[in-house]
């Protein structure tokens, strides 16, 4: 499966007898599985900020993401395959985003669209801004730009499709035994500042080490 680069559904290096070439095609399960998934990535209908407008623009007539099977924007996370984090992630919003992510069924992908979602972007220094959604969610594709133009977004989506192509049904986390919730992210808490509960001890130590001054 090493050369598993996408080359259409058929396995090209297998000789199919000429007379049945147009009725038979040979593929691997991986390929069929990935082919099905890559053309039906349903995004969560979920916009955060300015980037969301370009995401909407990418859905409209001129760019038409339907050509990639990505036009079915699902308002509920239960039916979505991909979370397109389109915009600035604020501390106040973060718990809702994590909750949405946890509700998405596997396989699920996260795409960080724009500078803000990738690292906080121009607002990184702000007191209410999370410096990148990758602090909490596993991001699959980063799309730089502020905002990425719809074409750049589609280019990013093609990157995501390529990533899907490389996955193998034998190794993906959602079929591994005993690891159903491998991607569950504990909910952060809004306290005096954002509390990432996975880092409680670290925070406690750092807060104690700050000394009187």
């Amino acid at each position: 499966m090493e050369e598993n680069k996408y080359e259409g559904l058929n396995l090209p290096n297998y000789n199919i007898p000429e007379d049945i070439q147009n009725v038979v095609s040979i593929t691997t399960i991986d390929r069929l599985y990935n082919w099905g998934r890559r053309w039906s990535v349903w995004p969560l209908m979920f916009g955060l900020a300015c980037c969301a407008i370009e995401m909407i623009a990418a859905q409209t007539a001129r760019y038409d993401m339907a050509r990639f099977g990505m036009e079915v924007m699902r308002p509920t996370p239960r039916q979505a395959d991909m979370m397109l984090v389109s915009g600035t992630v604020t501390k106040k919003m973060l718990p809702s985003i994590i909750r949405l992510y946890n509700q998405m069924p596997e396989p699920k992908y996260v795409v960080a669209m724009g500078a803000c979602a990738s690292s906080g972007g121009p607002f990184k220094e702000g007191y209410n801004v999370v410096a990148g959604i990758d602090k909490f969610l596993p991001v699959d594709v980063y799309i730089p730009g502020c905002p990425p133009t719809p074409q750049a977004l589609i280019a990013g989506m093609i990157k995501l499709q390529e990533k899907i192509d490389k996955q193998s049904i034998k190794k993906v986390r959602w079929y591994e035994k005993g690891k159903v919730d491998s991607n569950y992210v504990p909910m952060p808490i809004l306290g005096p500042d954002l509390i990432d509960v996975r880092r409680n001890t670290e925070i406690k130590q750092a807060a104690a080490a700050k000394e009187g001054a």
Binding site: S118, D140, V141, P144, G145, K159
Partner: peptide, 10 residues
């Protein structure tokens, strides 16, 4: 060139 999406921080 806008086709610069990647799998990591840039």
């Amino acid at each position: 060139d806008f086709d610069i999406a990647s799998y990591g921080r840039n």
